[in-house]
């Protein structure tokens, strides 16, 4: 066995030790925020432990009956199945608050065909092949501008909001993914694509596997409601999205679940438009970073596996995350 101390060049010793003294940007973390996150984690752990004990005492039979009752109630209260409540496996209340409304005067689009998984492509474990209507997607230049990055505050708000809204799930760190894999579950752009954008991705893992929440930033010159109107059918959705307008004029627009290739990718997106001209898209996916592959540094990531059968969060949870982003956007 070699002696690693002797292998270290003498001139590197001081340099390596000085790495901790280099200039750094100011920290964005404060103690209160950290303790808040810590308490949530503690509460979540205690809840899980308490539920485990209760389940053991009550017995499997009673537990199953109670769970079945709750689930039946939830599905019955979902306001709009087309907005995805039945495509998730979360046990929280999936319905949206009443201040989310369809914009008035928006017709339903007529499908030009249907989508179904490509023959031979594997489906997520436990999923059955779906057939979904296809409608024409309108042009979308909002997120094409180079150099519009998701700020650390927004990244942090997303991680915090996911942790808060899904306390039983394991929430990953916010990381950046280059390329189209961060959007729509689509295959990657060509490797030399000049407009490959960075999308922030947060893995969300529960008993059904790993999904994710992504967020990307863009610019819009239109006022929030005009921008939202122009992008009502931007996702290729046939049903119009639902919308909520905040007191400061920020518009949040929540789209129906979209089914697309590769594999059987599910995505539910929420876009928000601020009066300052910023736009964000927060989306929930049925795949996460384990389903991505990057051949080498600087080229877009590609999807390499189908992910899970369902979305990891409900539209209500997505709405809560979008509202948290709006608070710091």
């Amino acid at each position: 066995m070699c002696d690693d101390e002797q292998d270290l060049p003498q001139e590197w010793r001081g340099t390596l030790r000085s790495l901790l003294d280099q200039p750094s940007p100011p920290s964005t973390t404060d103690l209160d925020q950290l303790i808040r996150l810590g308490r949530r984690r503690l509460v979540a752990r205690r809840l899980v432990a308490a539920v485990g004990v209760l389940a053991a005492v009550a017995g499997i039979g009673i537990g199953a009956a109670v769970t079945g009752g709750l689930r039946t109630g939830e599905v019955g209260s979902a306001v709009q199945p087309t907005h995805g409540a039945s495509l998730t496996t979360t046990t929280s209340d999936a319905s949206l608050p009443t201040d989310w409304q369809k914009p008035t005067g928006m017709p339903t689009e007529v499908p030009y065909g249907t989508w179904s998984p490509a023959p031979g492509e594997p489906l997520p474990s436990g999923a059955t092949a779906m057939v979904a209507p296809l409608c024409k997607a309108t042009d979308d230049p909002t997120f094409e501008a180079a150099g519009v990055e998701v700020s650390p505050q927004v990244r942090q708000a997303v991680v915090e909001a996911v942790t808060l809204t899904a306390p039983r799930a394991e929430v990953g760190q916010a990381v950046s993914v280059v390329g189209e894999a961060g959007q729509d579950g689509q295959a990657a752009a060509p490797e030399d694509a000049p407009t490959a954008t960075a999308t922030t991705l947060v893995d969300v893992t529960d008993r059904d596997g790993t999904g994710s929440v992504s967020v990307r930033a863009g610019l819009t010159r239109a006022r929030p409601e005009e921008a939202a109107d122009a992008q009502v059918f931007v996702q290729g959705n046939c049903e119009p999205p639902v919308r909520r307008v905040l007191d400061n004029g920020t518009v949040l627009q929540l789209y129906p679940v979209r089914t697309s290739g590769p594999y059987q990718s599910l995505t539910q997106a929420l876009r928000l438009y601020t009066p300052a001209g910023m736009a964000y898209e927060v989306a929930v996916h049925n795949w996460g970073s384990p389903d991505l592959y990057q051949a080498r540094e600087g080229v877009p990531s590609k999807r390499v596996s189908p992910g899970r059968a369902t979305l990891p969060l409900t539209e209500r949870q997505l709405a809560e995350i979008g509202t948290a982003v709006a608070a710091v956007a």
């Binding site: 990953g172 990381v175 950046s176 960075a198 384990p290």
Partner: peptide, 13 residues
């Protein structure tokens, strides 16, 4: 984090 994300790039500009 590296294990979870080993199959894709962690940016960075």
């Amino acid at each position: 984090g590296k294990r979870r994300n080993r199959q894709r790039e962690v940016i960075q500009a």
